[in-house]
């Protein structure tokens, strides 16, 4: 007996199989996406050159980039190069002596002559001026990070596009920060 299909049966069969494959593909893709790693933008502090573009090129204003402080590395010293501007008149909290353009670093006496430096993220604009001062004259405990609670995670990060040292990269969402002290120079993710 002939098993030949009619043209109508053939087209109908093709359509059924195509529909089935499409549905399976969509489900498979969704499952893969749901279980795969999420990625976020972050700054490698060892590559950052403190160029200032994090403050001016983020789509958010003020920028999602903020200065963070690796307290374990800090010397807690009175003469902080990240807090006091070059040629400061006195080592105190007077605006004329502060390096930060928005006074976002708060200086608190721990015990003479040790001071703790805390970043007020409401005021920080991510300009890296303090980071440069700390890196040059101190031990680099101040550094920039993209704050993930503020970042809108653009597909193409506007800062990464203009970063001159290629310091901004995608990192896994389960380790969203590259804080100095817990992350070594040259470490691959």
């Amino acid at each position: 007996m002939s098993k030949l299909q009619s043209r109508r049966q053939f087209i109908s069969g093709c359509a059924r199989y195509s529909l089935g494959l499409t549905i399976a593909g969509v489900i498979g893709f969704s499952l893969t996406n749901a279980s795969s790693q999420q990625w976020l933008w972050q700054i490698d502090p060892f590559k950052c050159t403190n160029c200032g573009r994090c403050a001016t090129h983020c789509v958010l204003n003020p920028s999602a980039v903020k200065c963070v402080h690796a307290y374990a590395l800090c010397g807690y010293c009175d003469l902080c190069g990240g807090y006091l501007k070059p040629g400061h008149i006195a080592r105190n909290t007077a605006a004329e002596n502060q390096l930060c353009p928005t006074a976002a670093i708060e200086r608190k006496l721990i015990e003479e002559p040790y001071y703790e430096y805390h970043i007020n993220e409401e005021l920080c604009i991510g300009c890296a001026k303090c980071v440069e001062g700390c890196s040059s004259f101190g031990n680099g405990s101040l550094h920039l990070q993209i704050r993930q609670n503020i970042c809108v995670n653009c597909n193409e990060c506007a800062i990464a596009r203009v970063c001159p040292s290629d310091a901004i990269k995608r990192i896994p969402a389960d380790e969203p920060y590259l804080i100095k002290g817990g992350f070594e120079h040259g470490q691959t993710l």
């Binding site: 200032g52 001016t56 070059p86 596009r161």
Partner: peptide, 19 residues
């Protein structure tokens, strides 16, 4: 606009050239 030489200078530059 993306050429590093043509970009505007850093308005927040940490400058110790005077010293």
């Amino acid at each position: 606009s993306n050429n590093p030489d043509k970009r505007p200078s850093n308005p927040f530059e940490f400058n110790v050239d005077n010293y």
